[in-house]
Simulated assay, not measured.
Amino acid sequence: MHVSGELDLANAAVLRDHVEQLTLVHGHRLVIDLSGLTFCDSSGITTLFAACQHTQAAGADIVLAGVPAHTLRIFGIIGLDQVFTFWTGADAL
């Protein structure tokens, strides 16, 4: 799944709806490519965390790929770097 532009209050619900419509089972991996992300507010972060909970409830994994440095820094500050797996550089898609 690719997210680009702004992930904020105005459009976070769209991502949440897309993720909730996915049928995930044990062994699946949801990769959310954030390389095109230009802005992410607390609603976006909450939505990504909800996606994490959705995948974990299904026994699946979630990976955030291509996370911009400024967003990755925020994830570190709030401790979500301990929750998510990140793919960067050669690991990314």
Rank of each mutant, 00 (worst) to 15 (best):
M1C: 04
M1E: 07
M1K: 08
M1I: 01
H2D: 15
H2T: 04
H2Q: 15
V3K: 01
V3A: 01
S4R: 11
S4E: 15
S4I: 12
G5Q: 06
G5C: 11
G5F: 00
G5V: 09
E6Y: 07
L7H: 01
L7P: 06
D8Q: 06
D8M: 06
L9G: 12
A12P: 03
A12H: 00
A13Q: 09
V14R: 07
V14D: 13
D17S: 09
V19F: 00
V19K: 05
V19S: 01
E20D: 10
Q21N: 12
L22E: 03
L22R: 00
L22K: 08
T23S: 08
T23L: 05
T23A: 09
T23H: 09
V25Q: 11
V25E: 07
V25M: 02
G27C: 01
G27M: 02
G27T: 00
H28L: 05
H28A: 05
H28P: 06
L30I: 02
L30V: 04
L34N: 02
S35V: 02
S35I: 02
G36F: 07
G36W: 05
L37S: 11
T38V: 05
F39R: 12
F39N: 07
F39K: 14
C40H: 11
C40R: 06
D41Q: 14
S42Q: 08
S43I: 05
S43R: 08
S43Q: 11
S43W: 02
G44L: 09
G44K: 07
I45W: 14
I45R: 08
T47D: 07
T47E: 15
T47Y: 02
T47N: 15
T47G: 13
L48Q: 11
L48Y: 01
F49D: 15
A50D: 07
A51D: 04
A51E: 06
C52G: 04
Q53M: 13
Q53H: 15
T55R: 08
T55S: 08
A57M: 05
A57Q: 15
A58R: 00
A60M: 01
A60I: 05
A60P: 03
D61S: 12
V63I: 13
V63F: 02
A65Q: 10
A65L: 12
A65W: 01
G66V: 03
G66A: 06
P68R: 14
H70V: 12
H70L: 12
H70Y: 13
L72N: 09
L72Q: 11
R73M: 04
I74Q: 09
I74P: 14
F75D: 15
F75T: 12
G76L: 13
G76S: 12
G76A: 12
G76W: 09
I77L: 13
I77E: 13
I78T: 15
I78W: 08
I78Y: 06
G79M: 13
G79T: 11
G79A: 12
D81C: 13
D81M: 05
D81A: 10
D81Y: 10
D81E: 14
Q82P: 09
Q82D: 05
T85V: 14
T85D: 08
F86G: 11
F86C: 10
W87V: 03
W87S: 06
W87C: 00
T88K: 12
T88P: 10
G89F: 14
A90D: 11
A90I: 10
A90V: 03
D91C: 10
D91S: 09
A92Q: 13
A92D: 02
L93N: 07
